[in-house]
């Protein structure tokens, strides 16, 4: 066998490090230059400053966008988790005509280019009273996020196996009791993970939100609109906040999904 420090393995670790740097670079740039005193983010570094963070947090439009994002994220996470659980449980427990079509309809939305999804939702929702409200964004984001929620919960249900729930029925539990007392507690980590991941998906999405949100800007939409204007040092500051929030959400989701595995 090769020794662990052969040339080829050193090369492959260096390559991996380069790839990691490429992936992390844009995020690092955002964070580092949000504390730069310069107006335009470039080298040399213009000195440490939290001026832009202050400016960003004093911008009423940014604060409004943050609030919208929080509302939309929470609504999306709640709905997508409920729908995701329903879909995962249906797939796990039942067989009926049309299930496959239904599961595809739940799984596929993230594969549709967001520009098209945004346009379709805009064309459709503009004929409904919810158009231009945070509700319209929640509805659209839920369609995207339930796919991820379903995947996470379905994976956990596979670990549950067919016997546990049937054992509950066998011991006198009704269908509803078995779900409440056995399936839900068993899936709790993945359900919570689905909640946080759905929130992250919603928090990250800008195209559909831009199309259907009307005057209600979420944070990524605010950033998009700022990008289309002048160079604005507040972008880095607000970007740091956005990155911190979405990374935290995904990290929590990951941690939860992993604890689920350990308790088994």
């Amino acid at each position: 066998m090769k020794s662990p420090l052969s040339l080829s393995s050193v090369m492959s670790f260096i390559y991996l490090a380069c790839l990691a740097l490429f992936i992390a670079a844009p995020m690092l740039v955002i964070v580092v230059f949000s504390f730069d005193a310069n107006r335009f983010p470039t080298l040399p570094w213009g000195g440490f400053s939290i001026e832009w963070h202050k400016a960003a947090l004093n911008d009423p439009m940014i604060i409004a966008a943050l609030r919208n994002s929080a509302i939309v994220g929470f609504g999306t996470a709640t709905l997508a988790t409920i729908l995701g659980f329903c879909a995962a449980y249906l797939d796990y427990r039942y067989h009926f005509f049309g299930k496959r079509a239904m599961m595809i309809a739940v799984a596929i939305p993230p594969a549709v280019p967001v520009a098209i999804l945004g346009m379709a939702m805009l064309a459709f929702l503009s004929r409904t009273p919810i158009f231009g409200s945070p509700t319209a964004i929640i509805v659209s984001h839920t369609v995207i996020a339930s796919s991820f929620a379903m995947a996470l919960i379905r994976l956990r249900l596979t670990e549950l196996g067919p016997d546990l729930e049937q054992a509950a029925w066998n011991l006198g539990a009704s269908r509803a009791q078995a779900i409440r007392l056995i399936v839900l507690p068993f899936c709790r980590p993945s359900i919570m993970a689905a909640f946080f991941l759905s929130a992250a998906v919603s928090f990250d999405e800008f195209m559909v939100a831009w199309f259907v949100g009307g005057v209600h800007e979420t944070l990524p939409v605010r950033i998009l609109n700022m990008l289309q204007g002048q160079v604005n040092p507040k972008i880095n500051a607000i970007g740091t906040v956005v990155l911190a929030i979405s990374l935290t959400l995904v990290l929590i989701a990951q941690r939860l999904a992993r604890t689920g595995k350990e308790t088994r």
């Binding site: 992936i23 995020m27 740039v29 983010p41 992250a200 998906v201 990155l243």
Partner: peptide
């Protein structure tokens, strides 16, 4: 694997902006 999952769900639009800056 955990590290690779992070960027999939975190602010693509910001990263594009960062490349613009770079």
């Amino acid at each position: 694997i955990a590290f690779l999952i992070l960027p999939i769900f975190s602010s693509y639009i910001l990263k594009v902006y960062a490349w613009q800056v770079i």
